[in-house]
Amino acid sequence: MHRLGGVGLAAFERQQQSARSFAELSSTISQTQVENLHNQLAQFRAALSRYASTHRDAIRRDPTFRHAFQQMCSSVGVDPLAGPRKGGWWAEILGLSDWQYELGVQIVDVCVSTRERNGGLIEMGELVRLVSKLRGVGSGAVTEEDVVRSIKTLRPLGAGYEVLDVGGGKKMVRSVPRQLDEDQAVVLAVAQEEGGRVSEMLLVSRCGWTTDRARAALENMLLRDGLCWLDEQDEGDRTCYWVPSAMRWD
């Protein structure tokens, strides 16, 4: 008797063979689809960049247009400020490029928009992360050095932007023209290590301060400068302080 597909070992083999062929076929099809999508995306990005370079002036002039454009860019992963440099590559090599100033603008944007929650002090890593997010490119594209250099170019504006070393290799960017005293710098460094949380007890045991000194430093940061937030429901110390600039916000 003849059956479709047959009997015995040969049929088994044939079945396996056909399953293999189907699997191969499906992977080829999905690969082509992925490639197609990549191509489309690349084309779209190119078109968007071209659009950006032709409408550059309009984008700069009109804030609502600029905002909409930037949102569109960051959702497709394009750097909104990329494009032909007006100064050419010489200018870029000399450290005077538009790119640098543009990065400066983005730094100011991040500092100003986070100011109300962190009191005008932001941790360097966080700043780089937020600027990268704003630019919509991988975090490698903007480095700490870029940020430091851009902040230097902002100096003539007199806005008081400054990079502070708080010790332990940690840097912070201050965007309010106010002097940080030494004790506050220590508090910030401790807060960095503790994920944002500081308390009088912690400063006494960690830095060998007196309770009065710790209290004065924390009260100043809390009441005068608004650099930290009070927490009265802490389990250990009952009252503790949180430095928002040392916390990571999503």
Binding site: L223, W229, L230, Q233, W242
Partner: peptide
């Protein structure tokens, strides 16, 4: 999820 969010802040701006 920020602990101090649940405390009334003494600094008026905050």
């Amino acid at each position: 999820s920020a602990p101090p969010f649940f405390t009334q802040q003494p600094n008026p701006a905050t």
